[in-house]
């Protein structure tokens, strides 16, 4: 564990709490992509199958359980509790275009051709692109509530902090995880446009609005 990874994980936790706070206080999941949230459930379920056979640490165990549980809970809130506040006509990204290629990539690029490893690789590739339906939705509506942008910013910070973590690990432990690194860099890159608007508008007290 190093500071970058710890702060990254904390940013990830923060993003989930921000999202829960947004849904509970506005009693609405307006502006949140159900598809992206569903993809995160799939990401956690496929990545953490090692819960059953690979012990890392108590920290790792508790976080995994939390990510699985909280993502399922968010899905429940969106699907049942606040269902009428979700507008499927805005959430139109075709996730088949993400699932198919990620699965094929996982079959080709994995560390071992066995079920748990292919699922792990699949989850890494899928996480990298799972934000697409959310960003697509943002693009369609052209604006977002401030709290939704804070959620996305925390998610982006989490991904960004994993990059110095890998650099640090390379120099201190000599380990490189090429699958995680390449997918992680792609994933972080997807937030660049968003970050630009977030820093130049939302953090200056303006509304999050995309240029027409």
């Amino acid at each position: 564990m190093n500071l970058f990874r710890l702060l990254g994980d904390l940013a990830h936790l923060a993003s989930i709490f921000i999202l829960l706070h947004k849904i509970q206080t506005t009693r609405s999941c307006r502006g949140i992509s159900f598809k992206t949230q569903a993809l995160y459930v799939l990401v956690f379920l496929t990545r953490y199958v090692d819960l059953f056979f690979h012990w890392v640490s108590l920290y790792n165990f508790v976080m995994k359980i939390f990510f699985i549980a909280s993502s399922c809970y968010i899905l429940y809130l969106m699907k049942y509790r606040f269902r009428p506040t979700h507008d499927p006509s805005l959430d139109t990204f075709k996730i088949e275009y993400l699932l198919g290629p990620c699965f094929v990539l996982a079959l080709i690029f994995n560390y071992h051709f066995e079920l748990a490893e292919v699922l792990w690789a699949f989850s890494i590739y899928l996480e990298a692109v799972a934000i697409f339906p959310q960003l697509f939705m943002l693009q369609r509506t052209g604006e977002a509530e401030a709290i939704t942008t804070h959620y996305l910013a925390a998610l982006g910070v989490y991904r960004a902090l994993y990059i110095p973590n890998w650099i640090y690990r390379y120099f201190t432990e000599g380990v490189v995880d090429p699958i995680a690194v390449v997918a992680g860099i792609v994933q972080t890159g997807l937030y660049l446009d968003f970050f630009y608007v977030y820093f130049t508008k939302v953090l200056q007290g303006q509304k999050f609005e995309l240029p027409a």
Partner: peptide
């Protein structure tokens, strides 16, 4: 197994 050793990140 070596590869699972590296899966210590979340």
């Amino acid at each position: 197994k070596d590869s699972s050793r590296s899966h210590d990140e979340l």
